[in-house]
């Protein structure tokens, strides 16, 4: 199986803080790969590296066979037409209607006639169940609806790779279910490669083909959901099953309580 995205020995520092320490991972083509990890382990940073918004201090980032940090700006923008990213906030353009948001990439990158753009956009909105909401402005949408519009917008150009940044955060159980179903059906219908960055363990494990778990800038576990569930690594278990204390301490590092309070 060919890899669509490959990170080789990547080290990344931001403001002197080490975020990735020599990590390597492969994202298989046509599969759903999840990147799990506690908050603040640089999962979103990883997506920034893949899209070329950030450059690593050392190591290689390959997307569709191209080394992303070395691409000149025009080639990078050309590559990005094949990628799409679903932002945590949705990141809808607030000055455009729902319809125009979805039509944005079509208008920028293609020369399709107006009626074809209209049909394509309506089809995509239908996919996410929001065909009736085309004329609303983003400020009139609920959080879940905004994320679905953003999803419609990110698939309108039939990308090869789609990245989901915390798609389940702040969603009610119904919206979560809808999103899980959408992600799954999108991946199986078209030959999409999906990367799912999340800390919602159950949802992520339920739809992934392969899972990486990051912590402290390193890959602490990798495997199919099945393999991970059966692992007996303490830190992995604590994260997967949500135990409050374990190798990952509940307390932020500090002096002993007695020393600080009684001093």
């Amino acid at each position: 199986m060919a890899n669509y995205v490959e990170l080789k020995n990547v080290t990344f520092r931001r403001d002197g803080r080490l975020i990735f320490d020599d990590i390597s991972l492969q994202i298989a083509k046509g599969k759903i790969t999840s990147i799990l990890g506690p908050s603040g382990t640089g999962k979103t940073t990883l997506l920034g590296l893949i899209t070329g918004q950030l450059s690593p201090q050392s190591g290689e980032v390959l997307v569709a066979g191209l080394s992303v940090p070395d691409l000149p700006r025009p080639a990078l923008f050309e590559l990005r037409k094949k990628l799409s990213l679903l932002f945590q906030s949705g990141a809808l353009f607030t000055d455009l209607s729902v319809f125009e948001n979805v039509a944005f990439a079509l208008r920028e990158h293609t020369r399709l006639p107006e009626h074809m753009i209209r049909d394509l956009v309506l089809l995509r909105l239908e996919n996410v169940g929001l065909r009736g909401a085309g004329q609303l402005m983003p400020s009139q949408l609920s959080g879940g609806m905004a994320r679905r519009v953003a999803l419609a917008r990110s698939i309108v150009l039939d990308p090869e790779l789609i990245m989901y940044d915390e798609p389940f955060t702040g969603q009610d159980p119904v919206s979560k279910g809808v999103l899980v179903k959408l992600i799954q059906s999108l991946n199986s219908e078209s030959a999409l490669t999906s990367i799912l960055v999340s800390h919602d363990v159950d949802e992520a494990l339920s739809i992934s083909d392969y899972v990486y778990v990051l912590s402290h800038g390193q890959v602490i576990a990798a495997g199919t959901p099945q393999q991970l569930r059966q692992s007996d690594d303490q830190e992995l278990k604590q994260f997967l099953f949500g135990l409050p204390d374990g190798p990952v301490s509940f307390h932020f590092p500090a002096k002993p309580l007695a020393e600080e309070v009684l001093a």
Binding site: L79, R80, S84, L85, F87, A91, F93, A105, E108
Partner: peptide
């Protein structure tokens, strides 16, 4: 505000240069 709500990043990732657009 566009930057804070990730609209500029979204545009960049959609292959549209926000500096031009």
């Amino acid at each position: 505000l566009m930057k804070a709500t990730e609209q500029l990043s979204a545009m960049e990732i959609m292959g549209v240069d926000p500096l031009k657009r």
